[in-house]
Amino acid sequence: MTEPLVEADTVSRYFVDGDVTAVSDVSFRIVAGEYVALVGKSGSGKSTLLNLLGGLDSPTGGTIRFAGRDLADFGDPANFRSSQLGFVFQSFHLVSVLTAAQNVQLPMFETDLSARQRRQRAAELLELVGMSHRADQRPQKLSVGERQRVAIARALANRPALLLADEPTGNLDSSTADSIFRLFDSLHGDGMTLLLVTHDKLLAERADRVLTMSDGRLLSDQSR
């Protein structure tokens, strides 16, 4: 049997504030190279689960393993995020005072790459997402679709094992969203493991597997 890249075992997240159980006893596995969509209504617990998988939050119950290692074994969660994960956010979160190329270099500060190597890597990534012609532009000068492409390039900066995306097309119109879909397809085609939280049915349909959440529980796990 293939070793899972991500393994959630009866994971729960309970918030004392408001007495809410956001995620309850969720278990699943993702193997390397899978393209997984996590869907569900607002408040179903998908973003909370994504935060837990990304080490941005800690479960109050159960365990999450990454490549066979408990997340707690990575020490500082920042080490785990820097070396293993790429994050794509709904609202891009690009730094307004930096150019596209400089934004892509931000995660690389936690690596041993030299300034020249960082510049070179950023140029390659912008080329990959079709943004090399806009490398010197600041986010304000970019369209929303271009911003999301730059954010995806940034997420790939440290060659992550897993790309996590939270509503990556939530702020995009349909044609722009379509170009982002194709970009994810292309990354998946290159062997990247993707886990996308989305409301977008069209995006979810492109995934190999769809996990559906409701009221903090995993309602279904369907593979195509």
Binding site: R81, S82, F87
Partner: peptide, 16 residues
């Protein structure tokens, strides 16, 4: 705040 949180999410350590 969001920018700093984003940098932390991208893997920036506290000391950075």
């Amino acid at each position: 705040t969001r920018e700093i949180a984003m940098l932390r999410a991208l893997g920036w350590r506290r000391r950075r």
